[in-house]
Design a protein around this nucleic acid. Structure first.
Lengths: 134, 134
DNA sequence: CTACACCCTATAGCAACTACAGGGTCAAGC
DNA sequence: GCTTGACCCTGTAGTTGCTATAGGGTGTAG
């Protein structure tokens, strides 16, 4: 399996596959006589794992941990659970942040009276022209 | 006003203030005899504007546009409105993405039976071990 | 035999900072 | 008068997760 095929099979870009290899997330595969990367099904499984985890928003560092954990199949999956739960909390935090930001921006927008910049409440909200310059 | 004071007044880090100057967002201030940056109230107003816009999630490029627009006080604020509305749409998209991701991750997490990694549904979901290796 | 798609390495770029390294300046305290 | 410490300076490299480019080699179809 050449890199382009592996990439296509996992909806990944070729450069990204090479990048994962460079940062040690994907094991370097064998090479053909022409120095082309030759992947096997283990690589495909590994990269699929990585992509799925990435799609779920895990950082590469978290993916790295998950991969390590998943390699020791007899260990408790508590650590796995912890990583996922931590990630969920982080997502909730981000959603909360964005919602707060959304309502603030929405408020600013609704105050716009569509006149000149001089009257613009959006600009006004951003830059409260100082009443007293020092 | 020295850079540390300006930074403190706007809850910005000193390095960030210098960074804004470097990328042309904040005008270079006068210098003291010791080559220290000496800021005036205009700089304070400008940096406050930048920080508020950033807090609302505008990109630096959007901030740059908003600053340019806000300098021409007689112009229509339509362009300002457009930038803000575009940003709002973008925020909504991000919230949607995160919510979808959240529900997916939540589903994965709830399937965890807290046994060993070998049974772990989280790992299993991420890496469906191929039934037939090629 | 010559296009063309694919592969290789190595490096730089993106956003928006942040963190050094390696210096200079200045006010206070002994 | 000298040192300590907090501040300031420039310039560069690091962060995350890729993506893009330059400048080349390989393999196959017409």
């Amino acid at each position: 399996m050449k890199i382009g095929e592996l990439a296509a099979a996992t909806s990944t870009k070729v450069e990204t596959v090479r990048y994962y290899e460079k940062i040690g997330l994907l094991a370097p595969p064998a090479r053909t006589s022409a120095n082309y990367r030759a992947y096997c099904s283990e690589h495909l499984a590994r990269l699929s794992f990585i992509r799925r985890a990435r799609d779920l928003g895990f950082t590469l560092e978290a993916v790295r941990e998950l991969l390590t954990l998943s390699d020791d199949r007899s260990k408790s999956c508590e650590a796995v659970d912890t990583i996922a739960r931590t990630h969920l909390i982080e997502i909730d935090r981000k959603i909360g942040d964005l919602k707060a930001l959304r309502s603030e921006l929405s408020r600013v927008l609704s105050s716009c009276s569509h006149g000149t910049v001089d009257d613009c409440k959006i600009i006004g909200t951003l830059a409260p022209r100082p009443k007293a310059l020092s």
